[in-house]
Amino acid sequence: MYVLITDVDHFKQVNDTWGHMTGDAVLRALALKLRECTRSYEPSYRFGGEEFITLLKARNDRDACHAGLRINEAIAAHRIRFGAEQLSITVTSGLTRAHQGETLHRVLERADCAMYRGKQSGRNRCMFVDRALNVNQVQF
């Protein structure tokens, strides 16, 4: 089991430019895109603000990283329509494996750390963090 935390890049700018109703529409569109990009047994949950958590099932770290990157790329390629306008968003994600015996708090903390490292290093990326807290950008 893997946990992917996804955060909309520059979401405040969306609200400030187009208003909170558009911001809400962006969050709904993102939730729908997450549902479309994942398997039926991999749920996504809004985690507050503009963050979402997705529980991914994968055989290994490499497969999980492929899934995380695929999700990020699908979101970046998606156009959100509101009225006559279209808007594109990107997200930054933190991905980690949930190890047996770990608390949920610890797993979320690690994924959140990876996501923030992605924000600091340029946004629009998926970062993987292992149990030893080594963080790397997912690239294939």
Results as ranks from 00 to 15, higher is better:
13 Q>M: 15
36 E>Y: 14
106 R>G: 13
18 W>S: 04
95 L>Q: 07
2 Y>D: 09
13 Q>G: 05
105 H>C: 07
76 A>Y: 08
106 R>L: 14
40 S>E: 14
46 R>T: 03
27 L>I: 13
64 A>L: 09
16 D>G: 00
61 D>V: 06
66 H>C: 11
14 V>D: 07
49 G>Q: 12
22 T>A: 12
121 S>T: 15
42 E>Y: 00
25 A>Q: 08
66 H>A: 09
27 L>W: 14
129 V>M: 01
62 R>L: 11
11 F>D: 07
122 G>M: 05
120 Q>W: 04
40 S>L: 14
6 T>D: 10
108 L>F: 06
101 G>R: 05
77 A>Q: 07
120 Q>A: 15
120 Q>P: 00
81 R>S: 15
77 A>N: 00
80 I>C: 02
110 R>K: 14
49 G>Y: 14
86 Q>S: 05
81 R>Y: 04
114 A>N: 10
133 L>E: 14
131 R>G: 02
35 R>P: 01
41 Y>T: 02
93 S>F: 03
66 H>L: 14
115 M>A: 08
48 G>Y: 10
45 Y>Q: 02
32 L>R: 15
9 D>N: 03
129 V>W: 03
118 G>E: 04
103 T>R: 07
43 P>S: 05
48 G>P: 08
21 M>G: 06
64 A>M: 11
31 A>M: 05
110 R>S: 06
9 D>V: 03
133 L>S: 11
99 H>E: 15
135 V>T: 11
83 G>N: 07
53 I>C: 12
50 E>N: 09
94 G>N: 09
89 I>N: 01
132 A>P: 02
61 D>L: 06
83 G>T: 10
104 L>F: 12
55 L>D: 00
93 S>T: 12
34 L>I: 01
40 S>Y: 10
78 H>R: 07
51 E>W: 08
42 E>M: 01
85 E>G: 03
12 K>G: 07
104 L>N: 04
76 A>E: 08
37 C>H: 02
39 R>P: 00
110 R>Q: 11
76 A>F: 14
10 H>A: 08
64 A>N: 09
95 L>T: 02
66 H>S: 09
11 F>L: 07
53 I>W: 09
15 N>S: 06
